[in-house]
Design a protein around this nucleic acid. Sequence first.
DNA 1: TTTGGCATGTAATCCGTTACATGATTAG
DNA 2: CTAATCATGTAACGGATTACATGCCAAA
Lengths: 194, 194
Amino acid sequence: MARAQRTPFVILGLLALSGRRPRSGYEIRKVIDTVISSFWHESEGQIYPALEHLAASGAIKVQSETKKGRKKTLYAITAEGRAQLRSWLVAPVEVGKPRDELILKLMFGSETEIPDLIRHVEAHRARTEAGLAQCRRWEREGIKNPIRYRPFVQLTVRAGVHLCEANLRWAEETLQSLAAMNDAARTINPAKKT
Amino acid sequence: MARAQRTPFVILGLLALSGRRPRSGYEIRKVIDTVISSFWHESEGQIYPALEHLAASGAIKVQSETKKGRKKTLYAITAEGRAQLRSWLVAPVEVGKPRDELILKLMFGSETEIPDLIRHVEAHRARTEAGLAQCRRWEREGIKNPIRYRPFVQLTVRAGVHLCEANLRWAEETLQSLAAMNDAARTINPAKKT
DNA sequence: TTTGGCATGTAATCCGTTACATGATTAG
DNA sequence: CTAATCATGTAACGGATTACATGCCAAA
């Protein structure tokens, strides 16, 4: 049996949150790679086939619209789709198998030069700082832009904050350890460049 | 172009760390789902094909061994394989696309009952506590079991500690928020069960 | 006028997953 | 004796990724 596919539920969830307003496939794509991009992604080529399949199964309904000669296919969630979404929401969370390439490369650190590892961790720190800044912005935005599902968005933003801060603390600690290891190595072999 | 495959490099890395001792496919599998399982996994069906491919390309060499009538195929890394490993190790880390189902379900929290969300977060907390306990054990083991690559393992263990602690803090905070939201909801609609 | 964003898709391919198959050995 | 572990694989399937294709509209 194959792994449970979650793309349809992401679509259902976003259509449910959008309330009575139907959305086009393009809009769903945009929402996925902006508002939920920090904890979820979908491949481009998955959205439209999933939309088609959901419409065929009755979980969403199509409302085509022609505005200014330009046709859009808009989708709205049905009662059936909402029921499907709920049964998925209450099902136990399937925890993802870990795949952390940075940690893997550190694990194999004895096979490479310390400065290379330092570069990797510095890049990680930079990415994390950007992520934390984004989370902070979202926290502030949430306060002055109240919406029905805002409290839940805040929960996810807080997760981002906690995780980014932990990553930052670890990065600092690791950078210090690596610097110390590098100094020790240079003491033994002074030919090495910093 | 397809996504860069990392299975061969994981194998190469583990063979490099094992020093002069060659390993069987079975041993590699065991190592993957024990010592690096907290930050990396490989599917069962990937190891043997990857091993075959690496042997064909010259990155590893086969050393068959027959011990007590039982044949084992042992592999050791070659100079060529070590060079391939190093060029991968110094290449920029490819950051994984996020897929956090728990956060996703929280995001859609307005479509379900608060107690269901609480169960999800509690399960997450339990998993995280187990992970943290494991990391603590590894930290202690590392101290009394010094090996060549131990400092690098410690770096990865520290990452686990930082991340687990952050997850725990977030879980506590979130559980409190959810409890408050649940109380508020029950005040409005007292028919709901706790 | 040309760039970029809106809008909807398709196709090839590869990665990864699960499940199954097979047999020997060792510990309880 | 039998259950677990050692040991090596294979096959099918499906999901995911990337890249490409197409065309309209608005703004610079």
